[in-house]
């Protein structure tokens, strides 16, 4: 981030800077399950979160500011989510959309479901519901925008670096994500 994570901006500059950031959130939708449908519903004409400055056309995690994890996260999928999150540039925000990604939801006693996406990546806003209504997502987005307006980028980046979820990210979970992809050809060979 260069200068931003070292220098505290003067108040008026910070205000304008944050105002600009909060209304241009390029959003990467990590659609996993049912909630992804409600996410799409929130982006289409009736609810239309583009009017709030959320742009759901990020080409990938590297162009995104906001990650919306919508749906059930399974243990098999978790390394991929972690990897995508690590690929996003700072400052990055995460909305956990739906009960499954908040805490496991109706699959709280399942053997294959991760009980909450916050076990692997830090989450800024939780939207409850199974699935939540599109209005709930709009509310969550506005909560996040309030948060962005009030924050100091310097503190934010310092806090993210201290977060235990981000320590050793490259060595630990990223390795799993690697094996996820190199495992493919071997499987192909055995399966014919």
């Amino acid at each position: 981030m260069g200068l931003m994570d070292q220098v505290e901006l003067p108040k008026p500059v910070k205000y304008v800077f944050n105002w600009g950031r909060k209304y241009s959130l390029w959003c990467f939708n990590f659609g996993l399950a049912c909630c992804a449908i409600e996410f799409i519903a929130a982006s289409t004409s009736r609810h239309d979160f583009i009017r709030h400055g959320v742009i759901p056309f990020a080409h990938g995690p590297r162009q995104a500011d906001l990650l919306v994890v919508s749906g059930t996260l399974t243990d098999k999928m978790a390394p991929a989510v972690k990897r995508l999150y690590d690929e996003m540039p700072e400052p990055k925000y995460v909305i956990s959309f739906g009960s499954c990604s908040n805490c496991g939801g109706p699959y709280w006693d399942s053997y294959s479901v991760t009980k909450g996406v916050d076990q692997i990546i830090p989450v800024d806003v939780y939207v409850p519901g199974c699935p939540p209504r599109p209005e709930a997502l709009l509310d969550g987005i506005m909560k996040l925008q309030d948060r962005i307006q009030g924050e100091s980028l310097k503190d934010r980046i310092a806090a993210v670096r201290r977060d235990p979820a981000n320590i050793g990210a490259e060595a630990g979970m990223a390795l799993d994500a690697q094996s996820l992809h190199t495992a493919a050809p071997a499987e192909l060979g055995s399966g014919g």
Partner: peptide, 9 residues
């Protein structure tokens, strides 16, 4: 990737 164990649950 989306196996949630419905039959067992």
């Amino acid at each position: 990737y989306m196996h949630r164990g419905f039959e067992k649950l």
